[in-house]
Amino acid sequence: MKLKIQIPPNKINTTIIAEVILETKVILNLISSSIHSKGGIMIIEIPDNMFDIVKAGFTSRGASVIPLDVSIKRDEDECVDCGACISVCPTRVFSFDENWELQADLSKCTGCGLCTKMCPHKALEIPEFD
């Protein structure tokens, strides 16, 4: 699952992420991170069964943790099953079944958004998050 970690401005210069990894021993995957006036935001991916322990690790250090549904949304009325999205997806979310019908394995989606610009039919969208 994917989590949005919000780090308050006064904790930006701390080693919060390293501490959480060492403490929880959870191998997490950092998808994106950014720093702006309201603090830092990281999107990470962890195994589903580690949610409680990872959440505790971050919240005890003053960060907030929000489970994130960043998966793309596919509008099946607009989709014509062309498959343009297939080759740009870094995690291979899309594939054809034996009838050339487009399949999407949303559990693989990291919400990078490359496919939304590729789709000629505007059938793919990512829910906004900041």
């Binding site: 014509v80 099953d81 062309c82 498959g83 343009a84 999205c85 297939i86 080759s87 740009v88 291979r92 009838n99 050339w100 019908e101 590729m118 000629p120």
Partner: peptide
């Protein structure tokens, strides 16, 4: 090995 994408829909061509 490079992934390919059709831009045409083979399903609809069928």
């Amino acid at each position: 090995s490079v992934p390919t994408s059709p831009l045409s829909s083979f399903k609809r061509a069928r």
